[in-house]
Amino acid sequence: MAKPRDLDPRATLRGGLPDRYLTPDDIAEMFEVPLETVYQWRKKRTGPPGFRIGKHLRYDPADVRAYVDQRKHADATAA
């Protein structure tokens, strides 16, 4: 049986929230963008909110889901 870390983060987020904090690499893979884009989003405060644990950047899956829902809602009302 596959452990949550072995699963594709995009499939895990679609099927339910992962049971761990996400890394910048997870976010880049999930949104199919370069890792540098994730760091630029953080710098410009335009992407999902992240937080630091020591020197490590992490993302709460619930915050990522809320960010996606917010973006979907904003796009739907703009159309």
Rank of each mutant, 00 (worst) to 15 (best):
D19V: 08
G15E: 14
L17V: 07
I27G: 01
K43R: 14
P61V: 00
V33I: 12
T77L: 11
P34G: 13
M1V: 14
A28E: 04
T46A: 05
E29F: 11
E36V: 05
Y67C: 04
A28L: 09
Y21W: 05
E32N: 15
A78Q: 09
K3I: 06
P49W: 10
E32S: 15
L7T: 13
E32T: 14
L13A: 06
Y21C: 08
D26F: 15
Q40S: 11
H56T: 08
T77W: 03
P61D: 04
T46M: 04
A11D: 09
R58H: 13
A74I: 10
L22W: 10
M30G: 10
D6W: 11
L13P: 06
R20A: 07
P61W: 01
R52V: 02
V68P: 00
T46V: 12
L13K: 05
I53T: 08
G16I: 11
D63W: 06
R42Y: 10
R45C: 05
K72W: 00
V33A: 07
Y39H: 11
V33L: 06
T77F: 00
P18L: 05
A11L: 12
H56F: 06
H56Y: 04
R52H: 15
Y59K: 01
A28G: 07
G47Y: 12
A28K: 10
T77C: 04
R45V: 12
Q40E: 15
L35I: 14
R14V: 14
A2Q: 05
P4I: 13
A79H: 07
K72T: 15
T46C: 03
G50T: 03
